[in-house]
Computed example of a mutant assay.
Amino acid sequence: MPKRFNLREEAQKAFQNRKRKPELKRDAVLSTAAHLFLKHGYRRTSMEDIADHLEITKPALYHYFTSKDDILVGCYSQGIASILTRLDDADKATGSGLEKTRAFLRVWVETITTMEFGQCVVSLDDNELAPAARSEVRRLKRRIDRSLRERIAEGIADGTIKPCDIRLVAFAFGGAVNSIGAWYDPNGKLSTSAFVKAYTDILIDGVSMAPAPKPVRSSRRGARSTKSE
């Protein structure tokens, strides 16, 4: 789980000043809820738990969100919006369809490994939601899928991505990225930035049109060959 610093203290500050904007208080609720959902699970986290962490009453919490489902949809929305916003910025610095796809995957993996909202997108089960809320979450998820397919298609068109079944490749990428929430350890051997680059490279190398590098002989073997000649 991504590291958070003084989450409870920072979230409480939003409610200590009555003049604070409602948007800041909504954000504080979402940040707290995302942390608790990931730590304890969606079902095991109650509205009362969220209110207690914010040191507010349940009626005050209901002033900003109508239900726990409503809060979870908000967490999904924040995570997906972060991915799409950062993707737009990444696209401005890239050219080919392959590089846009690489940028997409990098942003996707980075958001999941560094933001709790991003991790909510891949770690929480939307089947636990009521039908209307589940439908809204899946609509948001489809935005990511469509955006990814567009970049893969662009890469095929400009010759930087191998001809492939775009739908199948998008599903493969999605499965690989979504699985991160189940096993990624931020305290592992690789730094977060090193992990993001390595994982993205593994995924993108499978569709790149660039030829695979030839194997390099060891210097010892090369020395023997030179001597025999």
Rank of each mutant, 00 (worst) to 15 (best):
S31P: 01
F15T: 12
R167M: 08
Y199G: 01
R26A: 13
S46G: 14
R138L: 09
R20F: 04
F195A: 07
S193I: 08
T32S: 14
S77I: 00
E55G: 04
I180V: 13
D158I: 00
A51F: 03
L30G: 08
T32F: 12
L105T: 13
Q12K: 14
D52C: 05
E99F: 03
K13E: 15
D70W: 08
R143H: 06
L36P: 03
K3H: 08
K13W: 06
S179W: 08
L203E: 03
E229R: 13
I83M: 15
E128M: 10
T111S: 02
W183D: 04
F104Q: 05
S208Y: 01
D49F: 00
T94L: 05
H63T: 13
K21L: 15
S147G: 04
R4F: 06
E23V: 15
D125K: 00
F104C: 08
I152F: 07
A132L: 02
A60S: 14
S147W: 02
Q78C: 08
C164T: 15
Q16I: 09
T113V: 15
I83C: 10
P22E: 12
D125H: 03
P186W: 11
S208F: 01
T101Q: 12
D158H: 06
W183L: 11
R43N: 07
L36F: 03
F5D: 13
V73I: 14
G181T: 04
D70S: 15
R26D: 10
L190H: 09
L36W: 02
L24I: 06
D158W: 02
S147T: 09
I202C: 09
R138W: 02
